[in-house]
Design a protein around this nucleic acid. Sequence first.
DNA 1: GCGGGCATTGTAAACGTTTACAGTCAAATT
DNA 2: AATTTGACTGTAAACGTTTACAATGCCCGC
Lengths: 350, 350
Amino acid sequence: MASASKTILDIAQEAGVSAATVSRVLSDHPNVSKKTHAQVRAVIEKYNYKPNSIARGLLQKSSRTMGVILPSITHPYYAAIFSAAQDEANRNDYVVQIYRLAYNAKITDEFVDKLIERRLDGVLFSGGFVEATDPNNLPAVLMRLQRYMPIVTICPPIPGLSCINIYTDLELGLRKVVRHLGALGHRRIAFIGATDETRSVGDRERGFFDEMQKLGLDAITQPENIHTPQMGAMAVLRLLQRVERREWPTALIVINDLMALGVLRQLHAMGLRLPDDMAVVGCDNQFFSAFTEPPLTTLEVDTEGHGRSAMQLLLRTKDAETPPFTQVREPVLIVRASCGADKPRPQKQS
Amino acid sequence: MASASKTILDIAQEAGVSAATVSRVLSDHPNVSKKTHAQVRAVIEKYNYKPNSIARGLLQKSSRTMGVILPSITHPYYAAIFSAAQDEANRNDYVVQIYRLAYNAKITDEFVDKLIERRLDGVLFSGGFVEATDPNNLPAVLMRLQRYMPIVTICPPIPGLSCINIYTDLELGLRKVVRHLGALGHRRIAFIGATDETRSVGDRERGFFDEMQKLGLDAITQPENIHTPQMGAMAVLRLLQRVERREWPTALIVINDLMALGVLRQLHAMGLRLPDDMAVVGCDNQFFSAFTEPPLTTLEVDTEGHGRSAMQLLLRTKDAETPPFTQVREPVLIVRASCGADKPRPQKQS
DNA sequence: GCGGGCATTGTAAACGTTTACAGTCAAATT
DNA sequence: AATTTGACTGTAAACGTTTACAATGCCCGC
């Protein structure tokens, strides 16, 4: 099957020149005569010769490959980041490898060893991490990795790790949501969050509680530990079973749209009318969020933008050492029908 | 930043042995004395030396890397395939690179050139392709690629390309759906399909029309050319505007769940009650399909299974030349509420 | 004491490129 | 006519490993 490829020497021989000349033809080096160029090109075309990028990488100390570490590529949030990052990399003739850091899996030294062995040109990290006390010690592991290659992160700054990072301020985002719901007249609002004590979860909780307190509203929470629609359904069921009916919240904020999907389903199953009996707001604005029933009000996070910018910056570190910095973006509240502010306007049929 | 890594020679020197001995220690070669082993290991640990996999790859003519060609990683269908394939590869110490063949983009010779240059150990292909007349000539391009590395495909057999392939028979799937809807009493059924003349679309159309004819039912179609929820919404709107109200279908089959998402939304927006006014069936059983309103009846395609098996087979070609074969799987009809066969049973609140 | 066998280690070639440097040759300059 | 120039091309080292083969030294049986 895999026919032994021609090497640059084979080509050189057949064209009656040295390997160096073939190499020069390949890279369009100026110092090669028209005649030789044509002659060598002909042989290259004849055998459809492609230089071995592994050999080239060895010499140039670059694999033209970037690594991307994230918890899951099937999660639409990370898929969007990855996809944009990949496009940007490909545009620059780089290739991207995913390293999956399974949710809650320990990031071990062996894990980063793999990246180091592969001699990647850089790494983009996105995912949750636990402050300070992190038993997996993500910061330490990434710090070690950084001694070998540049890192750009798409998440709040990781303490101790000095690198470029880009993220969206979801503490601010949650404040926006709370203010919006408060303005709509909701007094009792629940937050369906997560049990993991990651920074990104903590940010959202803080935004929620702070702003609730500021507005003098009644906060309830129901954390769950896995971010799936199933868990969203479970969480809201637990919440509404736990709380007396007359003390039910009138609005739910769900930590991400994936869980919100399950929340909506469960509320429907319980026979509640949305958004009148219960308003729901999500977070992330996934591709499906405009198509839920009712369409989901949510916070938009520009995942594609994050992925693209992060990869651009990572590629740039190749040429010039860029000093570390943090870029914070502001989430936008996308108002749809599920919060009750925007009555759905059915498209008329003719 | 990237500190120059130690080489095997540095280690050898410090341990007072030759590079060959270090190499033997690394690969746990039997012929090395306990004493030397310990001594060399110590130096390796001391500097946390990791062999350069690029240099190794050059010699062993293997990058321990597999390529995966697919249209889009943000599409949950392909994300699931990819994720499973990746897990399987990682388990075998392989790494995976995605090559995105943008939807409807021409697969060009330059595209496969990139794969060849990278000297991948194999390629897994999944995506649509157009029979015979394909202007992009996917078959020809893949045939060329196959001269350089083994290929496994997750799609119906590509004419002219002799390789291992795994797919789910959606012609059979559509027959199942039609029979199911027929049994529920539907006489007039519409198929919301796709305009692209790919084999996988064609299969579904054939299954639909054949079975409709066999049952003597009334077939309507509305093809659209991009597989998004937006297009699903658009398609159903066009369909219902085009057809006289009294000739409306009572059931819709949508070519995939992504489009079905938009279909459901549009039907709700038009004020129809589902499934009573209109039954809906999708295809693919995506992660969100159990959480739509009403939950979506659909055909299950074991994407994870496809991805895992395909990668296993690809890895195996390394050891032993496996003769080409085709493995066809049978889709399972998942009956949920959207087709009206299974009345939703709301979970009771206490 | 000597050859054979064995365990261990070293030597050197090989993998397929790129590139600094040196060389060649013809044309241009003096 | 000798020298300089410049365009072009070849030589060889280098990148960091692995591995076939050779070499060493030791123990054993004779």
